[in-house]
């Protein structure tokens, strides 16, 4: 168990767009205790997705130190970063990002191909994950045969199937109707409460954020100080 799971020290992120320097995150420091369900809110362009990507190891800070699950991410190579992600991160995308030529079960099984599990063990894990998200009867369905809510639940099953240290979700309800969004948020709550998963969710929806234990606001690259 890593506690805190995430530690960010004086993180800055600067992009160059059309020759202009754009500062997305500014001298940002905070930590996330293990078992937390945290929502990061903020308007578009506030840097919340960038912050999530830094924690996921799919982006690197311009300066500062990112320590997630006990690993200093900025010291890892691309290959090592990928290996680290496979062990520690379950990522849920706003637009689901399922592989269209694979069934729900095959999509969920994909991260397990990087483990040493046998085929039958992988199948057991996949069934468990899909049942957990309520799609035990949709295993052989292709993404095009599923509703948006169901696709996102498959995406969530894919994120948890390898039992990662933390789940990162980028606007997970952004493309869903209210009812489907509720289902997903309920699942996040269960994963956090019942399985003790650390969840960091980026959202601009206050109703979604309310389901988290903690809410932090990001404004122009600066995290608000909690009261």
């Amino acid at each position: 168990m890593y506690d805190p799971v995430v530690t960010l020290q004086r993180i800055s992120k600067v992009y160059f767009r059309a020759g202009t320097e754009v500062s997305v995150l500014r001298d940002l420091s905070f930590s996330i205790p293990a078992g937390t369900f945290l929502a990061i809110m903020g308007p578009s362009g506030s840097g919340k997705s960038t912050l999530l990507n830094l924690m996921a190891g799919i982006d690197r800070p311009t300066s500062g130190v990112v320590v997630v699950a006990g690993t200093r991410l900025h010291e890892l190579s691309e290959g090592d970063m990928a290996r680290w992600r496979a062990r520690h991160i379950g990522y849920v995308f706003q637009s689901y990002n399922l592989i269209p030529v694979l069934t729900a079960a095959e999509n969920v099984e994909l991260p397990l191909l990087l483990t040493h599990l046998s085929r039958s063990e992988r199948t057991d894990h996949v069934k468990t994950a899909l049942r957990l998200v309520g799609l035990g009867d949709r295993m052989d369905h292709y993404p095009r045969q599923l509703s948006g809510g169901q696709e996102q639940r498959v995406g969530l099953a894919r994120a948890i199937v390898s039992d990662p240290t933390m789940i990162l979700a980028d606007e997970p309800t952004g493309n869903l109707d209210r009812e489907s969004a509720e289902d997903i948020l309920t699942l996040f709550g269960r994963l956090n409460r019942e399985l003790g998963k650390t969840i960091v969710m980026v959202t601009h929806d206050p109703r979604a954020a309310e389901r988290a234990q903690l809410i932090r606001h990001l404004e122009k690259g600066v995290l608000e100080t909690p009261p």
């Binding site: 990928a82 992600r85 496979a86 062990r87 990002n97 592989i99 269209p100 991260p111 990087l114 894919r158």
Partner: peptide, 14 residues
């Protein structure tokens, strides 16, 4: 391209 990026996000290597 996006699918390959998703696969990389899941931890697959180049």
């Amino acid at each position: 391209t996006r699918e390959y990026a998703v696969i990389k996000t899941l931890g697959f290597q180049p």
